[in-house]
């Protein structure tokens, strides 16, 4: 890791060291994994924001994640997870978790965007990690949706299903549906690897490719169904349910009509 070219990545060597130290000291195997390559944007973070974030954190997050974000028995360490992870987890309502679950579910966010920004500022002050992406990074207006589809089928569809409907994983975990994910959240999820999802840093999937993927997911979210009702886009399973209820039901109704005694 030491041979990372720091200047190109705009990432100080020290923070990698800090990250490693933090990980070893806390021994948090379950740490929400950070991208070693991510490029935290140095957006205008004020001291007041960090202060406000610390207050919110102490109130709402510290019972699981520890008073200094070092993690605890019920929550991973947040040192070095970066602002993007906070913006994603809190912005999609996954955090704070209402109760202990196998996996945090998407809900309506509890905090306002300003509060989320403050939390993110505080958490990224604990240790550098991927920053919240800039709108220009996830702007997909010039993206290639067909190429996005190819990369999606290569990297995403194995968990999130061909139509972004999500799918089951092992031990009660699941890949969530992408139908409500915003471009920013998709980008954040890729660079931070929330929950069980692998990290797809900008070095693994360049920003341009991420925009293509976002364009494809945007297509999936709005795609028409030329053939008629989509039955949830889950493949042959829901087609079977329809077949043996409505379709064969209708045919049997007709057979009963034909066979019934006429009066």
């Amino acid at each position: 890791m030491a041979n990372i070219s720091g200047s190109r990545r705009r990432r100080p060597y020290a923070s990698a060291l800090l990250l490693l130290t933090a990980l070893t000291t806390t021994g948090a195997a379950y740490a929400v994994t950070t991208s070693a390559i991510a490029n935290p944007r140095t957006s205008e973070v004020t001291a007041a924001q960090i202060q406000e974030g610390k207050r919110l954190f102490t109130e709402g997050c510290s019972s699981c994640h520890g008073l200094a974000g070092q993690g605890g028995s019920s929550g991973p360490s947040l040192i070095g997870v970066g602002a993007a992870a906070v913006d994603f987890q809190v912005g999609t309502g996954r955090m704070p978790m209402a109760q202990a679950q196998v996996q945090a579910m998407r809900k309506d966010p509890v905090y306002t965007q300003a509060e989320i920004d403050a939390l993110a500022a505080y958490v990224s002050s604990l240790g550098a990690g991927p920053g919240v992406p800039d709108p220009s990074q996830y702007d997909f207006s010039n993206a290639n949706v067909a190429r996005g589809g190819e990369i999606y089928r290569l990297n995403c569809s194995q968990c999130h299903n061909y139509a972004g409907k999500g799918g089951a994983l092992s031990d009660g975990k699941y890949a969530p549906t992408l139908m409500k994910a915003t471009p920013k959240q998709i980008y954040e999820a890729m660079i931070t690897g929330p929950q069980g999802m692998p990290v797809f840093s900008d070095a693994q999937i360049p920003a341009k490719d991420k925009q293509d993927i976002i364009a494809y997911i945007d297509y999936l979210q709005n795609a028409p169904d030329p053939g008629g009702a989509a039955l949830g886009r889950f493949g042959p399973v829901t087609e079977t349910v329809f077949l043996f209820t409505a379709a064969i039901g209708a045919v049997i109704a007709v057979t009963i009509w034909i066979g019934a005694k006429s009066r």
Binding site: N3, I4, I151, N155, V199, F200, Q204
Partner: peptide, 21 residues
């Protein structure tokens, strides 16, 4: 070769927790 981007993979491209096809 990173199949998505078509680029050759260098070790430093990969984040911990990362996955490349």
């Amino acid at each position: 070769v990173n199949q998505g981007s078509g680029e050759l993979v260098r070790p430093e491209d990969m984040a911990v927790g990362g996955l490349i096809n």
